[in-house]
């Protein structure tokens, strides 16, 4: 990653992702409070659903981190193109499944 990309990455983290997280947290708290109001308990359901899925994504993130998925962050983009070019070649040679 060159200097300019690094700058953009830090810029996005500081001015987009962190504010995004804060505003999302405020929203979550607001919805939770609505769920506590009389007759509005159903409002809590999307909130529980979100927590359930978000927990799964936290585990997925940890799994990916422990597997080293973020060590060389640009490599997968190059790997994907190489692999695709290889399959193009194989299919050009007739290795495809017929219709």
């Amino acid at each position: 990653m060159n200097k300019r990309e690094k700058f953009l990455l830090y810029f996005v983290v500081l001015f987009v992702i962190i504010p995004g997280g804060i505003s999302f947290f405020i929203k979550i708290v607001s919805y939770f409070m609505v769920g506590l109001e009389e007759g509005m308990s159903g409002f809590a359901l999307p909130f529980i659903n979100y927590l359930f899925i978000a927990m799964g994504f936290v585990f997925l993130f940890v799994w990916a981190y422990l597997r080293g998925h973020f060590e060389d962050i640009e490599k997968p983009a190059h790997d994907m193109l190489e692999r695709n070019a290889m399959y193009d070649e194989i299919e050009e040679r007739g290795g495809k499944t017929q219709i």
């Binding site: 990309e5 953009l8 987009v16 929203k27």
Partner: peptide, 20 residues
């Protein structure tokens, strides 16, 4: 893709902050 790091940032932002 120009920046795979940025694409992952976009993805994890979507994963956690898009619902609801």
């Amino acid at each position: 893709i120009w920046s795979h790091g940025l694409s992952l940032l976009g993805f994890w932002g979507l994963a956690f902050f898009y619902p609801m």
